[in-house]
Amino acid sequence: MIRLCNVSFSYDDKSIIKNISLRLEKGKIYSVIGPNGSGKSTLLKLIGKLRTCDGGNITLDGKDYGEYSRKAFARCVASLPQSRNIPMIRSWELVSHGRFPYLDGRRVLSKEDRLIVDRSLRLAGAEEFALRSVSELSGGERQKVYLSMLYAQEAEYILLDEPTTFLDMSSKFGVMNTLTDMKEAGKCVVAVLHELSLALKYSDEIIVLSHGEIVFSGTPKELVEGNILGDVFGIKAVCVTIDGSNEYIIKEVG
C-alpha cells in the first residue's frame, strides 16, 4: 500500500499541494480529477517519486520512499507522464525499456526479459505493431505500446497522467479496459483523468482535488450523489444504464 501522510509541496514559494493524506491499495483504480491547476499532476509526480515532497511523508508497503533505491522503486511503481518524447525506434524496443530497472550494468536483456516484453505487448493488445516504428503509429496504437511498457516494468503500482487525452473514443475505451485488466491482475492504478464520464465509469475510487487539497475521496456513486461536482466543476452527473452497464452523462448546472 502507498500511504501519503500530510504531504505538501511548493514551487517557487507557491503552495501546490497542501497537507494531503491518502491510502492507495492494490486491486483498485483511483481517478484523480479536478480543475486545471488544482495540483493533480503534481500529486501524481509526488506519488511516483518524480518530485520530493516538502512536508509530510510517503511510504510504500510501510517503508519510507527514501529507503528505496531508484531501481528498487521503479520495480514497484511505474509512471507514465503526460508529455514524453516519441523515439524513432520499434515498438518492441520501446517496450523492452520497461525492463530497465531489472538490468545489470551490462544492460543486456535476458531470454526471460524478452519473453516478458512479448507477453506485455500481447497483454496490452499491441502485438500486431510490435515491429513498427513508434513514430509511425496512431495516438491510440502508441498509447497501447506505452501501456505494454508499463506491463513490462512489472510494477504493482501504475501511475498515469491523462492517459486518454487526444485519443479517439474507441482508443479511450481501449486504454481504460487495459487499466481494468491491470486492476484485475491485482495492480493499483492511479490515473489523472479529465473525462469525468470515464473516471466515473471505470474507477473504484475518485479523488477530487481543488487548490491543492482533497475535497472528496470516495466511490463514483458517492461522488454523483453528493454536491461536490457542482461545487468544484459547476456540473452534475447522471447515471444511466445502457446494455446492462452504468454510463454517466455530464450536464452543466445552470
Binding site: F73, S79, L80, R84, P87, I89, F100, Q153
Partner: peptide, 21 residues
C-alpha cells in the same frame, strides 16, 4: 552507454520512472 541514452531519449520523467539517475 547506448541503452542509457535510449532511456534518456524518452524524456526526463520517463527515464526517472524507469529508475535512472
Amino acid at each position: 552507454l547506448g541503452k542509457d541514452i535510449d532511456i534518456l531519449s524518452l524524456g526526463e520523467e520517463s527515464a526517472m520512472s524507469l529508475g535512472m539517475n
